[in-house]
Amino acid sequence: MATIGLDRLYYAKITEDDNGDETYDTPMPLAKAISAELSVELAEATLYADDGAAEIVKEFKSGTLTLGIDDIGVAAAGDLTGATIDDNHVLISTSEDGGAPVAIGFRAQKANGKYRYFWLYRVKFGIPATNLATKGDSITFSTPTIEGTVLRRNKLDGQGKHPWKAEVNEGDEGVTQAIINGWYSEVYEPTFAASGGSGE
């Protein structure tokens, strides 16, 4: 079903243990969302045998998340880009900046009034782009955009795989209201029933 809206943009800082496995801080609002564009790059390989394609493998490699936002506060800018806040509460960006990855959550309204919820588990952002224009005969809003690279998570899920995105539709069969209500209280952790198999 098509989506018609976008809101509730949140981020959560990541802490890694000695193995690189992520734990997430409590999610915090990032900014008011205007747009979100997610493009995905796949690693692809084709095995040829008997003069034809015998096997094709496509795996998630990375993605790009471009967010249009109303404004990014100094604290969020520091968390996402590695910029620092000086003693006068001025945000200072340096050539050595490099923000740590964060998790990004948001939701998009569907035509039926319910929402599709997302968590991207590991996104590394660059410096926000700023667009400015002088005031003319008409009012033009200049809003920042911020672009991040979406990566897979280091921590394995219950199937021994590296997730990069969690997505759920409100109202789908089997989706409890508790999942929807708690979507922004913590970054969603995949849950799989224990089994002796490989999960395939």
Rank of each mutant, 00 (worst) to 15 (best):
Ser62Phe: 11
Gly63Trp: 02
Thr64Gln: 01
Thr64Leu: 03
Thr66Gly: 02
Thr66Val: 14
Thr66Leu: 10
Ile69Tyr: 06
Asp71Cys: 04
Val74Cys: 14
Val74Arg: 13
Ala76Met: 00
Ala77Thr: 07
Gly78Cys: 13
Gly78Leu: 08
Asp79Val: 13
Asp79Met: 10
Leu80Met: 00
Thr81Leu: 11
Gly82Leu: 09
Gly82Phe: 11
Ala83Glu: 01
Ala83Asp: 00
Ala83His: 10
Thr84His: 07
Asp86His: 02
Asp86Gly: 07
Asp87Lys: 12
Asn88Glu: 08
His89Met: 12
Val90Tyr: 10
Val90Arg: 08
Val90Asn: 15
Leu91Glu: 03
Ile92Trp: 11
Ile92Lys: 15
Ile92Tyr: 08
Ile92Thr: 06
Thr94Glu: 09
Thr94Gly: 13
Ser95Thr: 15
Glu96His: 09
Glu96Ala: 14
Gly98Asp: 12
Gly98Phe: 07
Gly99Ala: 03
Gly99Thr: 05
Ala100Gly: 04
Ala100Pro: 00
Pro101Val: 07
Val102Tyr: 04
Val102Thr: 04
Ala103Tyr: 04
Ile104Arg: 03
Gly105Met: 04
Gly105Arg: 03
Arg107Asn: 06
Arg107Thr: 01
Ala108Asn: 00
Gln109Gly: 15
Gln109Val: 04
Lys110Cys: 02
Lys110Met: 00
Tyr115Thr: 06
Tyr115Pro: 10
Arg116Asn: 06
Phe118Glu: 07
Trp119Ala: 11
Leu120Tyr: 14
Tyr121Val: 02
Tyr121Asn: 01
Val123Phe: 02
Phe125Ile: 03
Phe125Arg: 00
Gly126Tyr: 00
Ala129Pro: 06
Thr130Pro: 04
Asn131Pro: 05
Leu132Ser: 14
Ala133Ile: 10
Ala133Arg: 09
Ala133Ser: 15
Ala133Phe: 10
Thr134Ser: 15
Thr134Asn: 12
Gly136Ala: 11
Asp137Glu: 15
Asp137Thr: 14
Ile139Val: 12
Phe141Trp: 11
Ser142Met: 08
Ser142Cys: 09
Ser142Ala: 14
Thr143Met: 06
Thr143Asn: 12
Thr145Val: 09
Ile146Ser: 06
Ile146Met: 14
Ile146Glu: 01
Glu147Phe: 04
Gly148Lys: 06
Gly148Leu: 01
Thr149Asn: 08
Val150Glu: 08
Val150Phe: 07
Val150Ala: 05
Val150Tyr: 04
Arg152Ser: 12
Arg152Thr: 02
Arg152Met: 11
Asn154Trp: 08
Lys155Ala: 12
Lys155Gln: 01
Asp157Gln: 07
Asp157Trp: 05
Asp157Pro: 01
His162Cys: 08
His162Ile: 01
Pro163Met: 05
Pro163Ser: 05
Pro163Ile: 00
Pro163Glu: 08
Trp164Lys: 04
Lys165Gly: 03
Ala166Thr: 07
Ala166His: 09
Glu167Gln: 08
Glu167Trp: 06
Val168Gly: 04
Asn169Gln: 11
Glu170Met: 06
Asp172Lys: 00
Glu173Cys: 03
Gly174Glu: 08
Gly174Leu: 02
Val175Tyr: 07
Val175Glu: 05
Ile179Ser: 09
Ile179Trp: 13
Ile180Tyr: 08
Asn181Glu: 13
Asn181Gly: 06
Asn181Gln: 14
Gly182Val: 05
Trp183Phe: 11
Tyr184Asn: 05
Glu186Leu: 09
Tyr188Phe: 13
Glu189Val: 12
Pro190Gly: 10
Thr191Pro: 04
Phe192His: 14
Ala193Asp: 13
Ala193Val: 06
Ala194Arg: 05
